[in-house]
Write a protein that binds this DNA or RNA. Sequence first.
DNA 1: CCTACCGATCGGTAGG
DNA 2: CCTACCGATCGGTAGG
Lengths: 196, 196
Amino acid sequence: MPAIKTQRNGSKKQVIIGKAARLFREKGFAATSMRDLAEEVGVEAASLYNHIQSKAEILQDICFRTANLLTSHLEKIEHSQQTAIEKIKAILSFHIQQMLNNYEEVQVADREWRHLTEPYLSNFKTQRRAYRQRLANIIEEGIRKRHIKPIDTSTAVLIMLHAVSGIESWHRSTERISAEQLEDNMLIILVEGLKI
Amino acid sequence: MPAIKTQRNGSKKQVIIGKAARLFREKGFAATSMRDLAEEVGVEAASLYNHIQSKAEILQDICFRTANLLTSHLEKIEHSQQTAIEKIKAILSFHIQQMLNNYEEVQVADREWRHLTEPYLSNFKTQRRAYRQRLANIIEEGIRKRHIKPIDTSTAVLIMLHAVSGIESWHRSTERISAEQLEDNMLIILVEGLKI
DNA sequence: CCTACCGATCGGTAGG
DNA sequence: CCTACCGATCGGTAGG
């Protein structure tokens, strides 16, 4: 019954990856040992290898799942009929939602991708560069149509993406505002300044 | 001649810390070995210990030097007679300058401080929290005087600081704009949206 | 899923 | 500043 076996392996693998994301975010990829991960999962370190191939594979799964999620959402927005400002708001809103609901994996993908090995490292960097370029193109479109100030698009992209990835600090803050308020405030600060 | 000896040790120690900052930024603190660092410096690993006490001490030096630099600049700005908007611009401008001129140490302090051990870890977190609070207070002052939109101050601080720390990507980009243009653009995007 | 274990590498020390 | 070396820990495998 290979179908059931795959299913079982798949679900246990996802548990392992989820726990790994938590540890990688807390301590970093390099400082997290397979024995740390095993303890978190509740098995011996050797047993992890019945479900995953290597420590590197876990990082690959986390990084590319996140990258693909963001890329495919960007694709949808690109093909919509919204104005540039609306598109940017939709993209940032999606980033914020991902950060709030799935922040461990998103942050690991954002911070620990440097530990990917080739050819995954190059693939990831290429996908990342393409994503930023496409976001810059949307801003460029807004500038051409005079909805957005004539700023440097690369700088704007850089600010937006890094600002969003900073939500971590908020996430663990004691004096929290609601997720809705957070999103509203971020969009005001990041987008209103762009408008003409 | 203890004065000369201290001077010599001091300068060689600074060389080691500088090389370490480069490696810690590239590969992360945990993934950088003392043998990697020794090779970069041009000595055997054991010889490093004539100049530094431990790997941990190098990270402490980098993190607190950067933290103290930013804190003491903030102090100056706080006591000046500028408006809140001007103060924020001055602080961000200083961050951007530090990032451009000294980005390796600044980035290590920003990204690798999690690897500090106690009591340094707690000290660093406290200093960091205080810095953000004082920046938030300046924004709060601007809101009270109706120079700044009534946004959530913690969110604004979070966005600003993370946006600035994202300059790394730009620094290694091929299609660069000038440092001046970068700073102008960042201040427009980050500050203009705040104004009423 | 476990016990037992591998070679490699780690941060750091002794002694000169 | 080097050679020689330490105990600890790493990612991963063999075999059951």
